[in-house]
């Protein structure tokens, strides 16, 4: 017992050390802040529970432990106490209620643009997750980026999310919670960044060999900088073609890409009737290989073995049958 406490206290300094830079406790926008507030509220109550139970536990074990002096002590026959049962059923119920109310409130609030930003016109960005990259389409602005997304500060951004392959989860912890992206479905999420800055985003839902490196950057900019960037992209970025897009969806890692149009022109994976862009042949790994099935609506590449390199840092993952080292990314 003593040693448990000791080992726990030994961890405390670490807690403090790392506590000062835990991303969940340093929200950079109203959405994340509302969740952090909720978490802090729950921490208070949970700390109370821990203190009470640990205290009671320590006291009882210490006081009633067997000692040479009390060898002859015969504990009484005791069957329980209705009053005590009521107390320790009642108080937890109250705690649960205290946690439920803000939880439900936050759950509802998170579905809408954050408080104080209702007035501001949100911008809509479509998120398409693929193996193992993030594609961001700005339908209103007519541009598309891969593995990074620029947003204006202090403006609500409505992300409309779907997946072109497996199920993934879109998470920018500094700005807010996460949500799944699923093929043939659409999920939505609002995020706002208080200040200009760069925030890490990543997939949290395991989706195969390239999962650990499926990251992206959210760059919040002042309106001015953001508009500059938009104009620049429109002017200089190439157009994405359908066949390039097909290649983009193959299971690969790649660096950043920028286009001056969006793939929504020909496919929106959120549409339940959109065709599935899957080619099992590209997912063969080690071990004994099973039979695959050809689906009518499946995407079939003419040359599944030949892949072109795309832009900066493109890398053909499927060549690497064993998962390989992704360290180079």
């Amino acid at each position: 017992m003593k040693k448990i406490l000791l080992s726990l206290t030994a961890l405390l300094p670490l807690l403090v050390l790392s506590g000062c830079n835990m991303v969940v406790f340093e929200p950079q926008g109203p959405v994340a802040r509302s969740i952090t507030d909720l978490i802090n509220w729950s921490l208070i109550w949970m700390l109370l529970v821990v203190v009470v139970v640990f205290g009671l536990f320590g006291y009882i074990v210490w006081k009633y432990r067997e000692r040479p002096e009390n060898k002859d002590y015969e504990p009484p026959e005791e069957h329980g106490s209705t009053l005590l049962e009521i107390i320790w059923t009642g108080i937890p119920i109250l705690i649960v209620i205290a946690l439920t109310i803000p939880t439900v409130k936050t759950l509802y609030a998170l579905e809408e643009a954050p408080k104080g930003y209702e007035e501001k016109e949100p911008i809509t960005i479509h998120v398409t997750s693929a193996d193992w990259k993030w594609i961001f389409s700005y339908p209103e602005q007519g541009i598309e980026t891969v593995n990074y997304v620029n947003i204006p500060e202090d403006t609500p951004v409505l992300f409309k999310m779907t997946s072109a392959s497996t199920m993934q989860s879109f998470w920018v912890p500094a700005l807010g919670g996460q949500k799944y992206t699923m093929p043939k479905m659409e999920t939505e999420m609002y995020l706002v960044a208080d200040n200009p800055g760069s925030y890490d985003g990543q997939n949290t839902n395991f989706n195969g060999r390239g999962y650990a490196d499926m990251k992206f950057e959210v760059l919040a900019q002042t309106d001015e900088k953001f508009n500059e960037w938009l104009a620049d992209v429109k002017e200089t970025a190439p157009k994405l073609t359908e066949s390039e897009y097909d290649d983009l969806l193959k299971p690969t890692h790649m660096g950043r890409l920028t286009f001056s149009n969006t793939h929504l022109e020909w496919v929106n994976h959120a549409d339940p009737h959109s065709k599935a862009y899957t080619n099992p042949e590209l997912y063969r790994g080690h071990g004994y290989q099973g039979k695959t099935f050809e689906e009518e609506d499946n995407y079939k590449s003419n040359q599944p073995n030949v892949m072109e390199n795309h832009g900066q840092g493109g890398h053909d993952e499927s060549e690497d049958n064993h998962g390989g080292d992704h360290n180079e990314h």
């Binding site: 921490l43 949970m46 949500k179």
Partner: peptide, 27 residues
Amino acid sequence: AFVPCFVIGGVTGVMLAMGAADYQYHN
């Protein structure tokens, strides 16, 4: 040892149970 350790598992379980907060803990 079960008592204190399981209490830690339990209270973090309650924290995870709070849907909105889970958006940050999930996975």
